[in-house]
Amino acid sequence: MNLNATLIAQLVVFFILAWVTMKFVWPPIVKALDERAKKIADGLAAADKAKADLSHAEKKVVEELRKARESAGDVRASAEKQAAKFLDDARAEAARIVALAREAAQGEAAVAAQRAKETLRDQVANLAVAGAERILRREINAQVHADLLANLKQELQ
């Protein structure tokens, strides 16, 4: 337990070691640890952001789906409406055509009936003339009695 010059030497060694540690040991470790802390913080922030993005995207997807469903419903409704309108139009057109055809047929039928009546009238007149000829047993001058015959035809109408 004696004191000697070792004490001074130890004092110097102490400062040399402390200086070297301060210069070459402490700063790199501080740097590495700070960098890692920053990395971890960044990583956590990125994870949080990703999570937020994901939930945002999910919300957006739900929204888009809802919109798509809505617009699909709209499209279907309008298509149905249009189809119904087409159907109605077609029905109306068909009814119109049918009515026209019926009218035309009726007109034609009326003309034909008129013509048949006239023909019949002519034939009846001729028959009446022929009958009268036979009755009178003599020829009637057609020209002389044309007026008479026309009147007769008129009456038969």
Binding site: N2, L3, N4, A5, I8, A9, Q10, V13
Partner: peptide
């Protein structure tokens, strides 16, 4: 001597 500044403890050093 208890204190002698001319001596070095080589083993400690």
């Amino acid at each position: 001597a208890v204190i002698d500044w001319s001596v070095w403890n080589l083993d400690t050093l």
